[in-house]
């Protein structure tokens, strides 16, 4: 016996001769699988807004999210009124100034502009 070569023949024979699974064992294993398989989420567990969103999406397709957002924004504008829209502009004080260019930059612009 030369060793490795002959052992490889034995191992190859063993690999080809895996035992057959009996139908009874397979049935038991699949019964276990069915017993412990998590169930897909039931409809009753989905909260109301998800159902409403799903219904809107079904009716309006891809426009549903944008439509809903626009509707809510329209209601908000209508309720708040155009004269009291500071909330929309933020909390900027009336005296606040936004400096678009630094003073030194303005000076340089004058110097080189002439």
């Amino acid at each position: 016996m030369t060793g490795t070569d002959d052992l490889d023949g034995f191992f190859a024979a063993a690999r080809e001769a895996q035992p057959a699974v009996s139908p009874k064992l397979m049935a038991q294993v699949l019964a276990d699988a069915a017993a412990f398989q998590p169930q897909p989420r039931a409809k009753a567990q989905v909260v109301w807004w998800q159902r409403a969103y799903a219904a809107m999406a079904e009716l309006w397709g891809g426009f549903a999210p944008g439509l809903a957002t626009a509707a809510v924004a329209g209601l908000a504008f209508g309720y708040a009124g155009p004269l009291s829209s500071d909330w929309l502009a933020g909390v900027m004080a009336p005296q606040a100034q936004v400096q678009m260019m630094a003073a030194s930059d303005l000076f340089l612009a004058e110097e080189f502009g002439q």
Partner: peptide
């Protein structure tokens, strides 16, 4: 897929893994 509730996944996994598991255990 099995964990998500797909029954076919259990059959495929059992068909693939059970013979190997049984053969190894038998030896």
């Amino acid at each position: 897929l099995y964990a998500l509730g797909d029954p076919a996944a259990a059959r495929d996994l059992a068909a693939r893994l059970l013979p190997r598991t049984l053969g190894y255990a038998a030896r």
